[in-house]
């Protein structure tokens, strides 16, 4: 069964997502920081990463996503980002010059995520990824 890595520093959210994802028999592992997340991607080779934007810093998730997509060994792992669309495109984050895909994630879902929405997005990303 597919392996999913959740990178989020909120243990309650992680636990809730685990419960939802495990109903579909996904194997779920988690990391509580960007740094730990990057290590676990290397070590555990997940099929999908669920990534929170705001961790140590307000945009830690962006850095993690960029790093994953810039690395040949992890660039094909789909990323589902936990964020509101406003936070994604609105005020706080600007396009960076030369960034063709400025937000290198495959899909996003706003917190709190509806269980059905989370499951359907995960399923879709795993199929295409």
């Amino acid at each position: 069964m597919a392996k999913i890595l959740i990178i989020d520093d909120d243990p309650d959210i992680v636990e809730a997502m685990k419960v939802v994802l495990q109903t579909r028999d996904y194997k779920v592992i988690s990391a509580a920081s960007g740094e730990e997340g990057l290590k676990k991607v290397k070590a555990d080779k997940p099929d999908l990463v669920i990534l929170d934007i705001m961790m140590e810093k307000d945009d830690s998730g962006f850095d993690v996503a960029r790093e994953l997509k810039n690395n040949p060994s992890s660039k094909d792992i789909p990323i589902l980002m936990l964020t509101a669309i406003k936070e994604k495109t609105g005020l706080d984050f600007k396009k960076e010059a030369g960034d063709e895909v400025w937000l290198p994630v495959d899909d996003y879902v706003e917190k709190p995520m509806k269980p059905e929405e989370l499951l359907s997005k995960v399923e879709k990303l795993l199929q295409t990824g």
């Binding site: 909120d10 309650d12 809730a16 509806k114």
Partner: peptide, 19 residues
């Protein structure tokens, strides 16, 4: 909002009968 999101994330799966 952070706390509320966590509350909702935990309660909703239960309310939906997922657990």
């Amino acid at each position: 909002k952070e706390h509320l999101a966590a509350v909702q994330s935990c309660v909703e799966p239960v309310a939906r009968g997922i657990t």
